[in-house]
Simulated assay, not measured.
Amino acid sequence: MLGGRKRIQLKTPEQVAKMRAAGLVVARALEAVRAAVRPGVTTAQLDEVAAKVIRDHGAKSNFLGYYGYPATVCASPNDTIVHGIPNDIPLQDGDLLSVDCGAIVDGWHGDSAMTVPVGAADAESLELSRVTEESMWRGIAAMRDGGRVSDISHAVESYVRSQTPPAGRSYGITEDFGGHGIGTAMHMDPHVLNYGRPGQGARLRTGMCLAIEPMVTLGTAKHVTLEDEWTVKTTDGSRAAHWEHSVALTPEGLLVLTAFDGGREKLSELGATVAPDPAA
C-alpha cells in the first residue's frame, strides 16, 4: 500500500496478471452485449447476456448486489448518464446506449464501459461517443510513473474542450462522477476527476491500477438522480456518453486490463509505452 492521507493499493506483476484475467471477462461480456444491441431488444435482455458470459467464465459480477444494485450491468440510454437499471422497455432505433460492466476473478476486479448506437443513431450522438472515448484514451496515455492523478483529469478535459460541438450545443463534463482505483475492490482510492489542472493529487506509481471513465453530455453537465437512487439523468434531456477502461501502470508501461489487445493499438498511436500482456 502507498502511504499518506489515502491508502492506495499497489499491485505486484502477479496481481496485475489476475486483474488482466478479470478484465478480459469484462471485455468478453461487453463484446457479447454489443453484438446483441439492436432495436427492440430490452436492457434486461442485455443484462442477461452479460450475466451469462460472466458465469460461463467462472467469474462473479461486482455490480450485482453492490449497495443493493439489482443487476449485472448498468444500462443507460440517451439522457441517462450513468447507473441506469436494466428494464423491459424495448430500445428504439436511433437510441444511444451506455453499458457499464464489471467482474471478479479470484478476488480481483475488472470494470469497463462503452457507448453504442442502437440501429442508426444520428451524427451528433456518434460524435459525442467518439469524443468521450478519445478523451478516455488521452487520459490513459497521461498515466506516467511520477506524474499526478490530475494529469489524467487534465488530459481528459483538454481533449473534450478542444472539440467543436454541434452548433448551439456544448459538451458537458459531469463533475460528481469520475474514475477510481481498482483492485481487491471495485472502487478504491484515488478518485480520478475528468477535469482539472495538471500536477495535483496523488503521485502516480508503478503498480497502481485505475479505472478511467469520462462521462460527457451534449448539453448541460447538471444532472439529477431519480427516486430509484441509482439512475442519473441530465437535467436538460441532452444525451450522454460513457467510456471506461481499467488500466495498470507497470514497470514496462501501460496495460489496459479491459481491452482485448491490452490497449496496444490505441496507446501506440498516442505515443505511450505499452506493457507486455501476461495473457498473450
Results as ranks from 00 to 15, higher is better:
residue 93 D to V: 07
residue 173 I to W: 12
residue 255 L to S: 01
residue 67 Y to Q: 14
residue 227 E to L: 14
residue 102 G to C: 10
residue 29 A to D: 03
residue 242 H to I: 07
residue 72 T to F: 04
residue 242 H to Q: 11
residue 29 A to N: 12
residue 94 G to Q: 07
residue 64 L to R: 15
residue 17 A to P: 11
residue 259 A to D: 10
residue 140 I to C: 09
residue 17 A to T: 09
residue 27 A to Q: 11
residue 240 A to F: 05
residue 229 E to G: 01
residue 212 I to E: 06
residue 198 P to G: 07
residue 107 G to A: 06
residue 74 C to M: 14
residue 17 A to V: 10
residue 11 K to I: 02
residue 224 V to A: 13
residue 160 V to G: 03
residue 81 I to Y: 00
residue 126 L to W: 04
residue 102 G to V: 03
residue 137 W to N: 12
residue 275 A to K: 04
residue 227 E to A: 14
residue 114 M to K: 08
residue 206 T to F: 14
residue 69 Y to G: 06
residue 114 M to H: 01
residue 150 S to I: 02
residue 171 Y to W: 13
residue 83 H to Q: 12
residue 215 M to A: 08
residue 89 I to E: 08
residue 181 G to K: 03
residue 164 T to G: 00
residue 17 A to I: 11
residue 274 V to I: 07
residue 69 Y to H: 10
residue 33 V to S: 00
residue 16 V to R: 00
residue 23 G to A: 04
residue 179 G to T: 08
residue 176 D to S: 12
residue 216 V to T: 07
residue 77 P to W: 00
residue 267 L to D: 01
residue 208 M to C: 12
residue 103 A to C: 00
residue 183 G to H: 02
residue 58 G to N: 07
residue 75 A to G: 02
residue 92 Q to Y: 08
residue 91 L to H: 04
residue 40 G to V: 11
residue 5 R to W: 05
residue 125 S to T: 07
residue 78 N to C: 09
residue 32 A to S: 15
residue 248 A to P: 03
residue 266 K to E: 13
residue 111 D to C: 11
residue 58 G to M: 01
residue 42 T to L: 02
residue 13 P to C: 11
residue 254 L to D: 09
residue 40 G to A: 07
residue 25 V to N: 14
residue 134 E to N: 02
residue 174 T to N: 06
residue 15 Q to Y: 00
residue 6 K to H: 08
residue 231 T to H: 01
residue 161 R to M: 15
residue 28 R to K: 15
residue 249 L to W: 12
residue 243 W to S: 11
residue 237 G to Y: 09
residue 39 P to N: 12
residue 33 V to L: 01
residue 224 V to M: 09
residue 67 Y to F: 06
residue 107 G to K: 08
residue 71 A to S: 15
residue 246 S to Y: 04
residue 45 Q to I: 04
residue 181 G to N: 01
residue 184 T to D: 15
residue 44 A to N: 03
residue 230 W to N: 13
residue 279 A to C: 06
residue 188 M to S: 08
residue 276 P to W: 09
residue 228 D to K: 09
residue 158 S to G: 05
residue 192 V to G: 11
residue 44 A to W: 08
residue 82 V to F: 11
residue 221 A to I: 06
residue 220 T to E: 02
residue 41 V to H: 14
residue 14 E to R: 05
residue 168 G to M: 09
residue 113 A to Q: 03
residue 213 E to R: 07
residue 41 V to Q: 08
residue 119 G to Q: 08
residue 219 G to S: 02
residue 172 G to V: 12
residue 100 D to W: 13
